[in-house]
């Protein structure tokens, strides 16, 4: 039974409570709910976390920004082609400190999602992000990025305007910035589209967020030619926060309330804000050169391999 059907069962129980007026029965049902939550909602498989990360009610980047930085001013446009609505960027203060905040925005309903292009940015979105980051570098503002995207948009227009080039430029320039960058994966972190905002000094992740090279569906369809095997793919892909922390790909995990972020949004936002500010206060002590150097060495060491060894040469002769 996956997480969504568990949620349905919970909702059913809660509805039963509302229907009943009798206080004894209510107490009993409430206890049942509590025990069920503790028993079932803590045992999450990787596929459950994928479902939670894509959950319809999961708070979007804008909800996070509204809580973390209430005075956020959005800035539009990449100055080259147009404004991409799937990436929002601007300036806002967090605890009185001005931050440049950049985030990929999912929609809450279909109409909104069409406007936001399901949080799949076009090249102009990445160029807007880069413009704002360069602005932050100029005014020595720290940068916060919130990542929640299935990936960069694969389409004719995106290819015509150089999707690959735009992402590569972001990776190139972000690795060179000397202001503190903190990235938080709040939902889905899919492939190069997520990494283009994720070359940061500190990468945090919500407990039920995922970060992967491609979607479990894509992985299953490429390896086993069957996209319905996605749950199986999710288990072996190592895309959950816990696995990535083990690999030291991410630095910190932010706790979510029982059952997922949407059960208690304020608590999620609060935890996120505390985690971000804790990391920022660690980073603000470092000089620009130090920040740059540490970021480069951190990414330099990513790789799961054995270094030089004569035995590894095997039979290669040339």
């Amino acid at each position: 039974m996956d997480i969504l059907s568990k949620e349905k069962k919970l909702a059913k129980l809660e509805k039963q409570i509302n229907d009943l007026g009798d206080s004894k029965a209510v107490e009993k049902l409430k206890l049942e709910i509590e025990s069920y939550k503790k028993k079932e909602m803590t045992k999450l498989t990787a596929w459950d976390r994928v479902l939670l990360a894509r959950h319809q009610k999961r708070p979007t980047a804008k909800d996070f920004i509204n809580y973390i930085s209430p005075d956020f001013i959005e800035l539009h446009g990449d100055r080259l082609f147009r404004d991409d609505r799937s990436i929002i960027g601007g300036i806002g203060t967090i605890d009185g400190i001005p931050f440049t905040i950049i985030a990929t925005q999912k929609g809450k309903n279909l109409e909104n999602n069409l406007l936001r292009n399901f949080a799949m940015p076009h090249p102009e979105g990445y160029r807007k992000a880069l413009r704002l980051m360069e602005q932050a570098e100029k005014f020595k503002r720290p940068i916060l990025t919130l990542i929640d995207t299935p990936g960069a948009y694969p389409g004719i227009g995106a290819e015509e305007r150089g999707q690959g080039h735009a992402i590569a430029q972001n990776l190139f320039k972000m690795s060179q910035l000397t202001v503190p960058i903190i990235a938080v994966v709040i939902g889905e972190g899919g492939s190069g589209g997520a990494l283009a905002l994720g070359v940061a000094n500190r990468v945090l992740m919500l407990e039920n967020a995922i970060y992967s090279i491609l979607s479990p569906e894509g992985y299953a369809s490429i390896l086993w030619k069957d996209s319905t095997l996605a749950p199986k793919a999710a288990e072996i892909m190592k895309l959950t926060a816990l696995d990535l922390k083990d690999f030291e790909i991410i630095d910190e995990i932010i706790k979510e309330p029982l059952g997922g972020a949407h059960y208690n949004k304020t608590e999620t936002f609060k935890n996120t804000k505390i985690a971000i500010m804790a990391e920022f206060h660690k980073l603000r002590r470092l000089s620009g050169t130090e920040l740059h150097y540490r970021k480069i060495t951190k990414f330099r060491n990513f790789g799961f391999l054995q270094r030089f060894n004569y035995e590894n040469l095997g039979g290669i002769k040339r």
């Binding site: 690795s175 491609l214 992985y219 190592k238 690999f247």
Partner: peptide, 26 residues
Amino acid sequence: GARMQEGIFSLMQMAKTSSAVASHSN
């Protein structure tokens, strides 16, 4: 593209190589 069999590590190679290009360019 990136090698799926190595998951997230392949993705991180994109950032790694790009920053190597930047160092060379500098």
